[in-house]
């Protein structure tokens, strides 16, 4: 029954696109958020950044206890040090970003009209490094996750605002991300939406599946299973492997576009990262 209902919801979501063939992020946003709000009427929009924790009292209680002294605290402190450190040329990350990089995470991923590509905050950090004569950092974990944890923390509570500009390449990237999100892949033949839209709030063995709405807001996050920090792209790779599909490269267009679409669907929700999850 649920699947039938969902199929209907997905159909309802796309009439704009069908009518004009031009991606319509604004109507998608309304339909995407409306789907969750209608399906779970007791959960207000902003609470979706809590991931699975509005679906299980017991998990919520454990999370609250973990958040008493969040396990990402070491990463946050380390990230701040890295962010504030001077490059060999005397400059620092602050010079690469608007507002010195403070309180800007809610605007990423961002479309870059110069290159015609989507730039995640992690890729922007690496661009900054390269511009200052340094090597790129791994986008999945380690120092990059720590820097992103700090930058995201300075945006905590700020409203996610990833507006897709009316630019053919930006709209194409958005559309490619949307396509990726709803496409089934891997030996298990799951799409992102299979778990995080259709089965959102249900159990997958011991875990409650987080709804796709708000899911990006807590990244980077400390996962108990990892025992350390990971970025959104690390999670993409993990999910792809879990459905037995070959993951894409961390800086691939596929993951940039996916992050772009997925984050834009949480427009209007608050940043809640860095976060902690099982």
């Amino acid at each position: 029954m649920k699947f039938a209902y969902l199929a209907l919801a997905l159909l309802v979501m796309t009439p704009g696109a069908l009518a004009s063939n031009k991606p319509d992020p604004a109507s998608d946003l309304k339909a995407f958020q409306g789907y969750f709000l209608k399906r779970f009427p007791k959960i207000p929009l902003a609470a979706y950044v809590n991931g699975p924790y509005d679906f299980s009292k017991s998990e919520r209680a454990q999370w609250k206890q973990i958040m008493e002294f969040p396990p990402y605290q070491f990463a946050l402190d380390h990230g701040r040090k890295l962010f504030e450190a001077k490059f060999p040329n005397g400059k620092s990350y602050a010079a690469c970003f608007p507002h010195g990089g403070i309180g800007i995470a809610q605007n990423y991923p961002m479309f870059d009209p110069k290159t015609g590509r989507v730039v995640t905050l992690g890729i922007a950090v690496n661009r900054c490094r390269v511009a200052n004569g340094l090597g790129k950092l791994k986008l999945t974990t380690g120092p990059m996750a720590d820097i992103l944890a700090y930058m995201t923390d300075t945006s905590r509570g700020k409203t996610i605002d990833v507006t897709v500009p009316d630019n053919p390449k930006a709209l194409a990237a958005y559309q490619a991300g949307k396509q990726y999100f709803y496409s089934r892949r891997g030996q298990l033949n799951f799409s992102c939406a299979s778990c995080h839209v259709q089965a959102a709030g249900m159990h997958l063995r011991g875990n409650v599946l987080a709804p796709a709405l708000g899911i990006t807001a807590s990244f980077p996050l400390y996962r108990s299973k990892w025992g350390n920090m990971g970025t959104l792209v690390r999670r993409f790779i993990g999910c792809n492997k879990k459905v037995r599909s070959v993951p894409d490269k961390p800086d691939s267009a596929a993951y940039r576009d996916l992050a772009y679409f997925l984050t834009s669907m949480s427009d209007g929700l608050p940043i809640a990262g860095p976060g902690a999850r099982p």
Binding site: K42, I43, P44, A46, A47, V49, N50, Y53, D54, K57, R60, W63, K64, M67, E68, F69, P70, Q73, D153, R156, G157, A217, S218, P270, A272, G275, A276
Partner: peptide, 16 residues
């Protein structure tokens, strides 16, 4: 159950 709280950790000031 309160929904509004987005799991805010402690104020950073305390952590210092």
């Amino acid at each position: 159950m309160k929904h509004a709280d987005q799991s805010k950790p402690r104020s950073p000031r305390r952590r210092e």
